[in-house]
Amino acid sequence: EEEKYTVIYPYTARDQDEMNLERGAVVEVIQKNLEGWWKIRYQGKEGWAPASYLKKNSG
């Protein structure tokens, strides 16, 4: 089951394993960790993003 989330704040990656996020983008969360960083898939790429910048899509 894919978990789709919408980006609610833009984010600029500060590290090579982080993802740039555009507000309104829909991403797939593939791994959650306890530090508040989630691994996401977006446009065929995978990387880490701050969970607080993502909002779960309803339905």
Results as ranks from 00 to 15, higher is better:
W37K: 02
K32G: 05
I8V: 15
L34M: 12
Q43D: 12
Q31M: 06
Y11Q: 02
L54Q: 00
E18H: 14
R23T: 11
I8S: 13
E2F: 15
E18P: 06
E28M: 04
Q16H: 10
P10H: 14
K39N: 01
A51Q: 09
A13Y: 03
Q16P: 14
A51D: 05
E3K: 08
Y9Q: 15
M19G: 02
Y53R: 13
L34N: 15
K4L: 13
P50Y: 02
G24V: 00
D17W: 06
Y5Q: 01
N33F: 04
I30V: 15
Y42I: 11
E46I: 06
L21G: 00
Q31V: 08
L34G: 15
G36L: 05
A51Y: 04
E3I: 13
N20A: 12
N20Q: 05
D15T: 14
E46P: 02
Y5T: 02
R14Y: 03
Y42L: 09
G44E: 02
P50I: 01
T6V: 12
A13C: 09
L34Y: 12
R14K: 13
V27Y: 01
Y11S: 03
W38R: 14
E46Q: 14
E1K: 08
N20K: 08
S58D: 12
I8M: 09
L54G: 00
Y53L: 13
A51S: 10
G24M: 01
E2I: 08
E35M: 08
A49P: 00
G59N: 12
E22M: 09
E3Q: 14
Y11M: 06
E46K: 03
D15R: 13
I8D: 10
Y42Q: 09
E2R: 03
P50W: 03
G36P: 06
N33G: 15
K45E: 06
Y11F: 14
S52T: 10
A13S: 07
Q43N: 13
K4E: 03
L54A: 00
R14G: 11
G47I: 07
E18I: 04
D17Y: 10
E46R: 02
Y5I: 02
W48S: 05
L34E: 13
E2N: 06
K55D: 14
E2H: 04
E1P: 01
K45G: 06
K32M: 05
K45M: 15
K56C: 09
S52E: 15
K32Q: 03
Q31P: 00
R14H: 10
R41C: 06
E3V: 08
L21K: 00
K32A: 09
A25Y: 04
Y9T: 15
D15G: 14
G44F: 02
D17T: 11
I8P: 01
A49Y: 07
N33E: 15
